Amino acid sequence: MFGLLKPNKEQVGSRLREVKDELGLSFSEYGNRLGLIKTTINSYVRGYSLAPLEVVEKVSALSGKPVGWFYFGEIEEYIQDYLLVRGQKALLKDHPDVPLKIKEDFLTGDFKNPGWETEFGYPLESFIDDCYAEIHIKLLREYVQLLALNYLNDHTSLEESKKEDASIFLSSEVMGYYEATRDFAYGDTEKIMATIESYYEGTLKKKELSFDDGYLVGKLINILADDEETEQLISGLSRELTGKRFSNFFGGNELIQVFQSLRPELLKLYAETTFDDYYDWFEK
Rank of each mutant, 00 (worst) to 15 (best):
F184V: 02
G214F: 10
S126E: 15
S171N: 04
W281C: 01
Q80V: 04
E159C: 07
Y178L: 09
Y143W: 14
S60F: 09
I135D: 06
L25H: 08
A166N: 01
G87K: 05
I221T: 02
I37R: 14
N113Q: 06
K219T: 09
L23F: 15
Q145M: 13
L139G: 04
G13D: 09
K101Q: 04
G109L: 13
R141M: 04
Y30E: 01
A194V: 05
Y178I: 01
Y30V: 02
F27S: 03
N32E: 13
E160D: 03
Y122G: 14
T230A: 08
D105A: 11
K191I: 10
P114G: 00
L100F: 15
L266C: 07
E159I: 09
A225E: 10
H136P: 00
Y132V: 07
R182K: 14
F249D: 07
E119W: 13
L255C: 02
E29R: 11
V55D: 05
L255E: 02
K101I: 02
A271F: 06
Q88V: 06
I128G: 01
G243M: 02
E173Y: 12
D165Q: 08
Y30D: 00
D81N: 11
Y177L: 12
F250Y: 15
E254I: 08
F70Y: 06
L140D: 00
E54Y: 13
L146E: 10
D165P: 08
S172Q: 11
S157Y: 15
K268Q: 14
I137W: 15
Q80N: 10
T40S: 12
K138A: 09
K38R: 13
G64V: 03
